[in-house]
Structure formats: C-alpha cells, structure tokens
Amino acid sequence: MFISKLKQALICLKAGRVTLAYPYKPSPPPEGFRGKVKVDIDKCIGCAGCANVCPPGAIEVTDFDEGWRRIQFHLTRCISCGRCEEVCPEEAVKLTDEFELSTNTKEDLTVTIEVYMDTCQRCTRCFKPKHPLDKMMVTGFRQ
C-alpha cells in the first residue's frame, strides 16, 4: 500500500509543472483547424451551395427584388464542420483558425455578405451573378 502511494507520488513529481501560459501567451491551434468562417467577397458568386449543405442550417439566404442577395452566416449555430468550405465552387468560404469568439451580444456572431445578381424575369429570385466574366478576372481561367 505504501509502495503504491510512493509510486503515485513519483509519477506526479516526474511530471512536474505542465501548465500552458494561456491567456498570457497565445496558444495557436495547429494548421487545418476549423474555426471561424471567413468569406472572400470578390470570389463569391452567390450560388448558396453552402447554405444547401449546412447541417445546422446556420446560413440564411435572402433575395431582394432589386437584385441583391444577402447571405448571413450565423456563428451562434455554426458547428465548424467545414462542409461549406468543401462545397464552395469558387473557394470563397474558408475556415480560419480563430477560436476566441466569446462575446456578450449575439449580434457580434454574424458574417453578412451582399452580392448583386441578376434576377429571374418570372419569379424575381436571384439566380446568376451579374458579370460572370468579371468574376473570371479575379479567379483566373481554369485549365
């Protein structure tokens, strides 16, 4: 019994102090970490493919009859699964390594983008980006 207690004490002493110095020193997550969502407005074509795949339905898409489409990412509900990043055809949605997201107001936890699109003549829903050729100047011609 005493030998067991001695062995346990030895394990503790050998381990020593292992505490990380967070929050006084930053503790960056490894590469490939799935954190906060970031959208590149120049690449987004407003296809809403991300909203279609999102499991918790955290992406809200609203069409306005003047040709604007507003895509809102609600980070309160986001589970950082990365499906939106995987599915985006233009690689506009990326998951950064930001994880320090605590706040006292929920309105801080949204990412809103507005994209100007052409509307359908019958139902006035937005369906294609205004200038597809302009978009190609940003992303480049693909082989």
Binding site: M1, S4, I11
Partner: peptide, 8 residues
Amino acid sequence: DAVVGDTS
C-alpha cells in the same frame, strides 16, 4: 503499476 497494488 502504481494503482494496482493500492489497498485503499
């Protein structure tokens, strides 16, 4: 090893 002999 340390825990298996602990009579408590």
